[in-house]
Design a protein around this nucleic acid. Structure first.
Length: 967
RNA sequence: GCGCUAGUAGCUCAGCUGGCUAGAGCACACCCCUGAUAAGGGUGAGGUCGAAGGUUCGAGUCCUUUCUGGCGCACCA
């Protein structure tokens, strides 16, 4: 302890006591300087092999299985990635602080159209596609795949760095990519399991088809351009006049016949239908008419039986006038009307194919164009296809891949190109009297982005996972099992996700898992000499083995015999009779990327022996249809068990006004820039404070607010640390052992213990915001405003080794320690920085620690003391009117009603922030006493009643005199 | 168009199964401290709970309609 300083040049000057105080002192800076300091933390963790050390240290600990959903590797990370990865990191670090063994493997989705499209666009721009087209198909695939792999790898590298910069902890040394041979192999195993279960089926489905390139196209590869086409209004003759008449409330017996049968009957001539009416459809693609299998109506629309220029036909009532006007009809007579629902089930004759079709219902029928009756060709349209599925119609497609008709159409069309067929079909219909009206018109039509030629919808053979096919395991369908799992086996955060997913599962169609592209995992199917497709679970497993060794590129570079090196025909009960490996031809479909991502539970969790299933999957709410659902289906099929126990979803980042972020609006926030301006810990603190279950509004302003909040927490920790200068941490336990429950330390530690419990529970529940608020309130109120303010006097002024002072230090040590641990999941850098300052050990790392469970009882009347503090503050505020502006100029007289707080009386002045507190016997209300007339201690600035002139000439209270060592 | 979801002080959010004068933090205003100082403390003013109906003794909380966002799906034959 230093002696009070006397000014030697001026002996008459009063002593100053500042240097005798134990003022806060710490190297832990007020300014965080995150931008420079965080990379240093990253380096320190990396150099000390933190992730590896944790794996070793937790080897025997209870595992926490958590699986990373793979982001798509086609650009730098955006706000959504930041949100997702940081939330996941809270989960990971939260579990680590609970002492669990966590092996979190980051992953990337690397295949798929967006990358391929991007690569193709670049090749196109560089003029390299022409050269590409000269290559043999397999070489061409390989050339594209090499480019795609390079692009994916590049972005993985970029994203990984950005994710690390967010201070996330994961096995970055050994991540998973869907293009890794081991991953691909494990994906094929899932596929083989599904084949075993009998849910993999092959069926026709219409896709966008480029005739010029003889290939299927994705939506992203279409360009819409105006094109002149022939639109036709066609009459499809009803098959049964009587049934149609009945639907319209008409009769088909002539009035004469009726009169003859029943002389009393009065017959209304107008109810007599003496011709067979037609159903009039409209189409802009006459070439699809040979594939017509049905006509769709809307059940709730009204339909009219109408005579137009002598032609009796049926169309939507609302459109009669429009159609008549368009065709220039002169005589229009509506004979009768009926509901669309009444028409459903009626049959009609195809105008030039020898078959009948049916009227079906569809709610996509509109009254904007056409006739209200929609020509339906399930092999040539997405809607038509779905309607066909529902009605049990085949996806009939008589068009070959070169755009010509096959032999199933009438002879006059066979082998013709569909484009020339347009006019011929119209002429044929005109000749046979089925064409009501035709005209040329311009409309926007999809074109192949590369060849600039118009595309068509064409049904092709595709691979499906049937969701309504019973699996061999238990005879339940995937849909039924998935619904069951969603209902009973999976927890949802937020709870409404359950509803949402149920709805999606109920309505989802079979899963089409094949794509006609280059960049992906090949579906290992062959065509045999007999023309049949060869694919059995054993053959798939054999190829899986081959891919594990060679990667899936082998599909394009090896022969069937090489690919099937591990295949044992004799051991495959499903092998086709007369199997001839030399006659096999490879097919070139690839898997839907969702199938690969949806198999990650196998390729990562099971393949790496991490555990199965995952405790939770945590992704954006769009994944209810995506990854969540498409992981659930394969997992249920292959294992019967859902791949996750719980689904946690977050919303999307939107701008300040609640609108979605998009580059075109220009309201995006750049993650790199954000990190550069605020640092990762502040960004993470922002994430921790979001209400992530819904849309999350983001704006630079909000990060400033988060920064303020962060600074408050940081500064509180700093203050705790600054009072621990010279404190021997090893004394903490002995100092605090058995402290009175009425002591300030009992109170503050009880608060810390309570917050710790809340924080731990909240993190487990993924209620990060709740945890953050508890921590913030602890720092802002419990500590900064109450405890630190109350103990300031004793820490600064008490003798250094006073019991009271050291007790406060011990409490602060324990509090700072607990805070570091509570903050570790949220602020990895700051918590670690503080922890090293606290332990005064540069090699210490809070991330190797785990929570300590604090137990500290405190007196039940503390709540009353704190409430009284509020009342006294209010009274002090009122007393300002009488000139008592500084609380240390005031004393407090407590009335009878508060006398039971006697056990706390020693600490009450500090708790209230006043100089003295008196329990007054004759008092009815709290009274603020003006102490300005009393001497003020020159060291502690308190007027506690013991202040008098001391031997050194200074005015000191008893306590301060003792501390300074004067009498 | 359909499914899910949200709309509470200037901002970010609490408000469980309906029940005292609707809460918190930030920001704001005023004040104190200047020995946590590009810190700290105190007090205070802010809301017809998106809108309109309805159920109820009583609704931010339940029902209906509607407006404005978000996510997903479908759609223009």
């Amino acid at each position: 302890m230093s002696e009070p300083k006397s000014d030697s040049t001026n002996p008459s000057a009063k002593p100053t006591y500042k240097d005798s105080l134990h003022l806060p002192k710490t190297a832990f800076a007020m300014k965080a300087n995150l931008i420079q300091a965080e990379p240093q933390s990253m380096k320190r963790w990396e150099d000390s092999h933190l992730f590896g050390r944790l794996q070793v240290a937790r080897e025997a600990a209870e595992p926490f299985v958590f699986h990373d959903g793979p982001p798509y590797a086609n650009g730098p990370i955006h706000m959504g990635h930041m949100l997702n990865k940081v939330l996941k990191d809270f989960v990971v670090r939260g579990a680590l602080m609970e002492g669990r063994r966590v092996r979190f493997v980051p992953g990337w989705d690397t295949h798929g159209l967006p990358i391929e499209h991007k690569v193709m666009t670049e090749l196109h721009e560089k003029g390299k596609t022409a050269k590409l087209d000269t290559l043999a198909p397999e070489q061409r695939h390989m050339a594209i795949r090499r480019e795609c792999a390079a692009a994916a790898t590049k972005f993985i590298g970029l994203q990984a760095e950005q994710m690390k910069r967010l201070l996330t902890i994961a096995d970055y040394a050994d991540p998973y990519y869907t293009l890794m041979p081991g991953y691909e192999s494990k994906t094929l195993e899932v596929f083989a399991d599904l084949v075993d279960q009998g849910v993999v089926v092959r069926a026709l489905k219409p896709v966008h088809w480029s005739i010029a390139n003889k290939t299927a196209l994705a939506e992203a590869e279409l360009e819409y351009e105006d094109r002149e086409d022939l639109s036709v209004y066609v009459d499809f003759e009803a098959a049964d006049r009587a049934k149609v008449a009945a639907a319209f409330g008409l009769i088909t017996e002539s009035p004469a016949e009726v009169a003859a049968a029943d002389t009393d009957a009065e017959v209304d001539e107008s109810r007599f239908l003496d011709v067979t009416p037609s159903f009039m459809i409209w189409t802009t693609t006459p070439w699809t008419l040979p594939a017509n299998l049905a006509i769709a109506v809307h059940e709730r629309f009204r339909y009219a039986l109408v005579e137009i220029d002598g032609n009796t036909t049926i169309m939507a009532s609302e459109l009669v006038e429009k159609v008549a006007k368009k065709a220039g009809a002169e005589k229009v007579l509506v004979r009768a009307e009926t509901d669309g629902a009444k028409l459903v089930g009626l049959a009609y004759r195809h105008p030039f194919c020898a078959r009948e079709g049916r009227i079906v219902a569809a709610d996509y029928v509109t009254l904007e164009d056409g006739t209200g009756l929609v020509h339906t060709a399930p092999g040539h349209g997405a809607d038509d296809y779905r309607t066909g599925l529902r009605e049990g119609l085949p996806a009939y497609c008589p068009v070959r891949e070169d755009g010509t008709y096959d032999d199933s159409v009438p002879e006059w069309l066979r082998g013709k190109s569909i484009w020339t067929a347009n006019a011929e079909v119209a002429e044929h219909l005109r000749a046979s009297g089925h064409l009501f009206y035709d005209h040329k018109f311009m409309h926007s039509y999809p074109h192949d982005w590369r060849s600039k030629t118009p595309v068509i919808f064409r049904a092709t053979e595709q691979w499906f996972i049937g969701v309504d096919v019973p699996v061999k395991r238990d005879g339940k369908t995937l849909r039924a099992r998935a619904l069951e799992a969603v209902e009973k086996e999976v927890a949802f955060t937020p709870e409404w996700g359950r509803n949402r997913m149920r709805g999606m599962l109920e309505s989802r169609p079979d899963w089409c898992i094949s794509r006609q592209r280059s960049w992906g995992l090949p579906i290992p199917a062959f065509r045999g000499a007999d023309g049949k497709t060869f694919l059995t679970s054993a053959s798939v497993r054999a190829i899986a083995k081959r891919f594990a060794e060679k990667g899936s590129d082998a599909w394009f570079t090896e022969s069937p015999a090489e690919l099937l090196a591990h295949y044992d025909v004799a051991g495959d009960p499903h092998a086709p009779a007369g199997f001839d490996i030399t006659a096999l031809v490879k097919l070139h479909d690839i898997f839907d990327v969702w199938f690969e991502a949806g198999s990650s539970w196998n390729s990562v969790l099971r393949a790496r022996n991490i555990g199965y299933p995952s405790e939770l999957y945590l992704e954006g709410s769009d994944q209810h249809r995506g990854w969540f659902q498409l992981s659930l289906l394969p997992a249920l099929g292959a294992t019967g068990i859902a791949p996750y126990k719980r689904l946690v979803t977050h919303g999307f980042i939107v701008d300040k006004e609640g609108r979605k972020m998009s580059k075109s609006i220009g309201n995006t926030i750049d993650v790199e820039a954000l990190l550069k301006e605020f640092g990762a810990d502040v960004c993470r603190w922002w994430v921790a404070g979001t209400d992530y279950e819904n849309d999350i509004r983001a704006d630079l302003e909000f990060f400033k607010v988060a920064g303020e909040s962060y600074r408050k927490v940081r500064n509180t920790i700093r203050y705790l640390l600054s009072n621990l200068d010279g404190f021997d941490a090893s004394e903490t336990d002995s100092i605090l052992e058995g402290i009175a429950d009425t002591s300030l330390e009992a109170w503050v530690l009880a608060q810390v213990a309570g917050v710790e419990e809340v924080v731990r529970r909240a993190i487990v529940a993924c209620s990060f915001r709740e945890a953050q608020q508890a921590i913030y309130t602890l720092c802002n109120e419990t500590l900064s405003s109450v405890y630190c303010a109350a103990t300031k006097d004793r820490l600064y002024c008490d003798p250094a080794r006073s019991v009271r002072r050291r007790r406060a230090q011990a409490a602060m040590y324990r509090t700072a320690d607990a805070l570091c641990r509570m903050l570790a999941p949220f602020l990895p850098h700051t918590a670690d920085e503080a922890f090293r300052a606290l332990t005064r050990d540069e090699t210490a790392c809070v991330h190797l620690e785990r929570h300590r469970t604090l137990v500290q009882p405190c007196h039940p009347r503390w709540t009353e003391v704190l409430a009284l503090r509020e009342v006294v503050h209010a009274a002090l505020e009122r007393a300002k009117a009488s000139g008592i502006e500084n609380p240390l100029d005031a004393g407090v007289m407590l009335p009878e009603a508060h006398h039971h707080l006697q056990p706390f009386v020693e600490d009450l002045p500090d708790i209230f922030g006043v100089s003295r507190v008196v329990m007054a016997a004759d008092q009815s209300a709290i009274e603020i006493v003006d102490l300005r007339g009393e001497p003020r201690c020159e060291r502690s600035w308190k007027r506690d009643g013991s202040v008098r002139q001391r031997s050194d000439g200074g005015l000191l209270s008893d306590r301060d005199a003792e501390a300074v060592g004067v009498a």
